[in-house]
C-alpha cells in the first residue's frame, strides 16, 4: 500500500535488544513525529529501516509501499525511495557535494542514461539558494569541517535533490540556532506533498512549531507507547517524559 509500514519490529545490537515490537504506519501525504527520551531507540529505528549492517532484526516487518525493506542493502533501500537525514552526518573528505549528489542521482538512472551537467547544476543551485547555502559549497568535501548547522542544511539539500518517497529526519533540529531551524524547516515543508511521507524524529517540541505534524508518537524503550495529535507534543513539553514511562509500565 502507499505507506511506510512497520509492524512489531524487533532489533538488537550484540545481545542488547533495542527495538521491542515497534509498530507504526506513515501513509504518503502525512507528516509524523516521533518524540522520546534519549536512548529510547529513535536513531536505531531510522538505521534499521535503512539497512544498517550492525543491527540484527529478530522479528516483525517493515515495508515501503509493497516492498519489504528487511534484508535489503542500504543502497537498495535508498533507491526504493527511503531517505534518512542523519542525526550525525558523516564527513567524507575528498568527495565534493556536487559529485556526491550527482553520483547518487546517477545511481537511480537506468543503464545508459546520464545526467546533463548544465541542468544538474541549475537544479542544484536552485535548491542551494532555497536553503541559503553559498554556491562555494558545491566543491567542498561532503560535511568535511562543516558546522553542525551546515551539515544539517547539507542533509536537507541532499533530500530535496533526491526527492525520496519517504524521508526520516533524525534530530535535524539539534544544534541549530533559530534562523537555521527556520531555513531547514522551510526546506522540509516545501517537500510536504501528497506523494511523500515524512517522519520527523525529535527530542524537543520546538521543531514541531515549524514542521507541524499530523501525528505525534511517543517512543520509550523501543516501542511506541502513545500516539496523538500535535497537542501531545505540547503536553510532553509541559510534563516531561516520565509520566509517559510510568504509564507505559503501568499498562
Amino acid at each position: 500500500m502507499n505507506s511506510l509500514k512497520i509492524d512489531n519490529l524487533q532489533a538488537s545490537i550484540g545481545d542488547k535488544s533495542i527495538l521491542r515490537g515497534l509498530s507504526l504506519e506513515i501513509p504518503k501525504g502525512e507528516v509524523h513525529a516521533i518524540m522520546g527520551p534519549n536512548g529510547s531507540g529513535k536513531s536505531t529505528l531510522a538505521k534499521v529501516l535503512s539497512g544498517h549492517p550492525d543491527y540484527e532484526v529478530s522479528g516483525g516487518t517493515a515495508t515501503l509501499d509493497d516492498d519489504s525493506l528487511l534484508g535489503l542493502e542500504p543502497d537498495e533501500i535508498s533507491r526504493l525511495g527511503l531517505f534518512l537525514a542523519f542525526q550525525y552526518p558523516m564527513e567524507v573528505p575528498g568527495v565534493s557535494i556536487a559529485n556526491f549528489i550527482r553520483a547518487a542521482l546517477n545511481a537511480r538512472l537506468k543503464e545508459g542514461e546520464k545526467i546533463k551537467a548544465v541542468e544538474y547544476y541549475k537544479d542544484l543551485y536552485a535548491h542551494m539558494d532555497d536553503l541559503g547555502m553559498d554556491r562555494k559549497f558545491t566543491s567542498r568535501s561532503l560535511n568535511d569541517g562543516f558546522s553542525g548547522g551546515e551539515k544539517k542544511r547539507c542533509e536537507i539539500l541532499q533530500m530535496s535533490m533526491l526527492s525520496p518517497k519517504y524521508a526520516i529526519l533524525d534530530e535535524t533540529d539539534s544544534g541549530l540556532d533559530i534562523d537555521a531551524l527556520r531555513v531547514v524547516s522551510d526546506g522540509v515543508n516545501r517537500m510536504r506533498n501528497p506523494e511523500r511521507g515524512i517522519l520527523v524524529i525529535t527530542h524537543y517540541q520546538r521543531l514541531l512549531d515549524y514542521i507541524v505534524p499530523d501525528y505525534v508518537h511517543v517512543m520509550s524503550e523501543g516501542k511506541i507507547v502513545r500516539t496523538g495529535g500535535k497537542e501531545l507534543a505540547l503536553e510532553l513539553e509541559d510534563r516531561g517524559y516520565d509520566w509517559i514511562k510510568q504509564e507505559a509500565v503501568a499498562s
Binding site: G51, H52, E73, P74, M90, V92, A104, A107
Partner: peptide
Amino acid sequence: FYMKQRGL
C-alpha cells in the same frame, strides 16, 4: 553506510 544510504 552514509554513502550507500544515498543510493550508491
